[in-house]
Design a protein around this nucleic acid. Sequence first.
RNA 1: GUGAGUGUAGCUCAGUUGGUUAGAGCACAAGGUUGUGGUCCUUGGGGUCGCGGGUUCGAAUCCCGUCACUCACCCCA
Length: 440
Amino acid sequence: MKYHAVKGTRDFYPRDMAIRNWIVDAWRRVSLRNGFEEYDGPIFEYLDLFRAKSGEGIVSELFHFTDRGERELAIRPEMTPTLARMIAAQAASLPRPIKWFSVPRLCRAERPQRGRLREFFQWNADIVGTDDVLADAECIFVVLDFFREVGLTPQQATLKINSRSLLAALLAARGFAPDRHAEIYTVLDKRDKLPPEVYAEKLESVVRTPAERSDLECMIQAHGAGGLDEVAELARGNEAAEAEIERLRELFKLLAAMGVADYCTFDMSIVRGLAYYTGVVFEGFGQGALRRAICGGGRYDQLLTVVGGPPMSGLGFGTSDVVMLDLLNEFGLLPAEAGVSKHVDFQVIDAAGDQSHVVLRIVAELRRAGHCAEFSYRRGNLGKQLKQAAGQGAKWAVIVGDEYRQRQALAVKNLGTGEQVERSMDSFLADPVGQPAATP
RNA sequence: GUGAGUGUAGCUCAGUUGGUUAGAGCACAAGGUUGUGGUCCUUGGGGUCGCGGGUUCGAAUCCCGUCACUCACCCCA
């Protein structure tokens, strides 16, 4: 072939499209029942919007171009800047809390690899305009509501939770100036994602003395059931840290009240790579062969000010279709029906070969009534047409043949059970799916 | 941008120490079958063996280059 799909992009043939819709529908269903409203924005934005949020370094990771009006634009690599821009523009008039979700198509100019492509779909849900811990709980619940919706158990997927505020308070008490925190976070985030030697090397480059490093390691390894108590020991007398620990305890109680505590653990090593997180941070992990992060999110305080809006606290999360489908496949949680791209209710068959006008009349009326009705361009040859009907999963076959010629009747066959009854044209069209009275 | 691996039909893959016209299964199509489906049988279409060059009497096979894909690194919003 001369042309093929560009590196890192996918063609969605009907089966693939059905699977994509299956997961997007689940995201949408879960979002809506959690009280979120859907929004969307343009697929490209000013390049500066992304520079403002992520810095100059982001540019090489973007697909960007200059339009004929010399505007520097970029295809969106994430949704959050657009969300911030949209909320900032109408911040004064939006009712709080702002609970919005979106399933944007995003593009990043990265080298593709397992779970990461150059074009993908991402589910984002954010709660903006409040710093209430109830919002933290609700946002995290949405993720776990989705896990349960698709059948992911706490043995298959978990959510690790931490707090940037807590980290900041503990770091400050150890003499790390606030302007050093960001680079320390970036390294800490890699603790469980890099080989130990590589991580150690990176840590040395930002934390000079061995004493500081072992202190940090001691702090960061707190996790699990007793993790918060361990940290509370370390934080004794540190007011800011103690307050945040209390907030986390409350968060875990709320998650327990919502019945999703089984999925959640406290873990001080979760810090997220992203610079703008300021409060609670969390990351989901698959517990199978691919033990990678499958979703992540957190609270941010300065996001809107970056785009010129008023200060507003919020939190949100994101996850991609690529990594989520990998995970669901791994656990066999993608049902066969997910890939079904055509749902035929009635296959109307011209058994005689000269009844096209009758077949099309029936087909048109069924379609008008909202049913999916199909017919074959092949006329006559009942066997082949039934085969075709079965091949595309039709529920019923409606046969126009001898009984129609003799007494205007149709043979209606249930392709699931093989049962076949004769019905008059009028009774069938009046109630196609209903069980008919006994044949006259 | 760096490194490794893999490229044969739409898909999954065979293909002997280099040897004659490159195969199978699945999928697709036609027929067996002019009123009863998923099975079965027969047949068919579909390939510049990723591309270019080299070695050789002869290359899918060996060598070099190149491109694509996959995986890992970098990065991660």
